[in-house]
């Protein structure tokens, strides 16, 4: 299953809920959720741990808009909107953790 998160982990518990509940699968960070993948941030460790269980993706246009492309944690894959479409197509269903 594809899990989509769109909120900063320091604003809302969406990422926490996703990581607590989601079965092993794929997680895509979009909009303000891309801040979760910033190296040295409070959520970096959490994300590294999650990367052992899930494949983690970040939406690059959102990363670039927020000027954090050069400080992403290891183990996350950057994709564009075309890649976002492919991810949705490749999974039976998706849940948006709004």
């Amino acid at each position: 299953m594809l899990h989509i998160v769109n909120k900063s982990p320091q604003e809302r518990p969406s990422l926490d809920a996703c990581l607590r509940i989601a079965e092993s699968g794929s997680i895509l960070l979009i909009e303000d959720a891309v801040y979760a993948a910033v190296k040295g941030s409070a959520s970096a460790g959490k994300l590294a741990e999650a990367a052992k269980k899930h494949r983690i993706y970040v939406l690059l246009p959102d990363v670039e808009a927020r000027a954090i492309a050069d400080r992403l944690v290891d183990g996350v894959t950057g994709i564009d909107y075309g890649g976002f479409v492919d991810l949705v197509a490749d999974h039976r269903a998706c849940q948006s953790w709004l």
Partner: peptide, 18 residues
């Protein structure tokens, strides 16, 4: 439990969240 809920979610065809 959280993991039971995760399993149930993974069985769905359509997940709507608001």
């Amino acid at each position: 439990s959280s993991s039971e809920l995760g399993e149930l979610m993974a069985e769905q065809d359509v997940v709507l969240s608001f």
